[in-house]
């Protein structure tokens, strides 16, 4: 039978763990709120840029940007994998990576090569272990993602698309639905489908300065960058809420373990007292 002291130390250690998980839960809860705000703050820009891009692509039928043209042969596929930098956030990263892995197997089965752009330490580590071909990566984005850090890695992927090294581009991240629910999604970025942009409104056209091509080129690059940024922002909000939920569960579990241990501890203590008493009584009777 375990001694009273050992159980006490065990209880102490579980209590310490519980303190940590509870603190992490609260930190994640407050970060989550900010992350959600940031995610929403990015929406108007994305919406505006989508509207303008939609209009431009419909208003200029004579100029087709390569991003809008579907290629006949699909040889290599690029995937931007967005994960968190840190762990302890439930199944968030596992779900995303499992989804990507499933798709990669499918593509490789169909003889398509896969190129990876990893966002977040977890994606990078996983892809390195898998031996995937990594085009670019970015890690340690922190709680506030900055466009500046994403420009380089995204440009590498877009250049690869322009040069024909990849023929399609997907992005995989965790979509934030609500605090309790986040789900991994895989979306196509390139080529941009007409439906994604929606239909044009009206039949007028802009005056372009300096010319339509330059403006459209720049706009579409921004559009893709915005989508990636949005995915990263959404992933961070998902990460925080997922961590909050995971840490809450961990705190609750620690509470249960403590209760059980206390019960065992009290039982042992009671048993020891009873034993001692009966020994005394027996001793007295013998005299």
């Amino acid at each position: 039978m375990a001694g009273g002291k050992e159980i006490r130390t065990k209880i102490k250690s579980v209590q310490n763990t519980q303190k940590i998980t509870r603190a992490m839960e609260m930190v994640a809860a407050s970060k989550m709120r900010k992350a959600q705000d940031r995610m929403r703050a990015a929406r108007p820009y994305a919406e505006k840029i989508r509207n303008v891009a939609a209009h431009l692509s419909h208003a200029n039928p004579e100029y087709k940007h390569p991003f809008l043209v579907k290629r006949d042969s699909l040889r290599r596929i690029g995937v931007i994998v967005v994960t968190s930098d840190k762990g302890l956030c439930g199944g968030l990263n596992t779900n995303v990576l499992r989804m990507v892995l499933g798709r990669m197997k499918e593509w490789e089965g169909a003889n398509h090569g896969v190129e990876i752009c990893a966002v977040g330490t977890k994606a990078l580590g996983f892809m390195q272990r898998m031996g995937a071909s990594i085009l670019s990566h970015v890690t340690h984005l922190g709680d506030t993602p900055h466009m500046e850090k994403l420009i380089g890695p995204v440009k590498v992927v877009l250049d690869a698309y322009n040069e024909g090294r990849i023929d399609a581009l997907y992005i995989c991240y965790t979509r934030f639905i609500n605090t309790m629910k986040q789900e991994p999604v895989l979306e196509q970025l390139l080529p941009i489908s007409g439906e994604a942009l929606g239909s044009a409104t009206g039949h007028w056209d802009y005056i372009y300065e300096p010319d339509a091509k330059a403006v459209v080129d720049e706009l579409l690059v921004r559009y893709i960058e915005t989508l990636v940024y949005q995915a990263v922002a959404e992933n961070i909000a998902s990460e925080q809420s997922s961590r909050m939920v995971a840490m809450k569960a961990a705190s609750d579990n620690a509470g249960n373990v403590i209760d059980e241990l206390k019960l065992i501890y009290n039982k042992t203590r009671q048993a020891a007292i009873t034993k001692e008493l009966s020994e005394i009584v027996a001793g007295a009777a013998a005299v």
């Binding site: 703050a41 108007p44 820009y45």
Partner: peptide, 8 residues
């Protein structure tokens, strides 16, 4: 509207 990717 003056908007950037990070905020309005």
């Amino acid at each position: 509207d003056v908007v950037s990717a990070e905020r309005s």
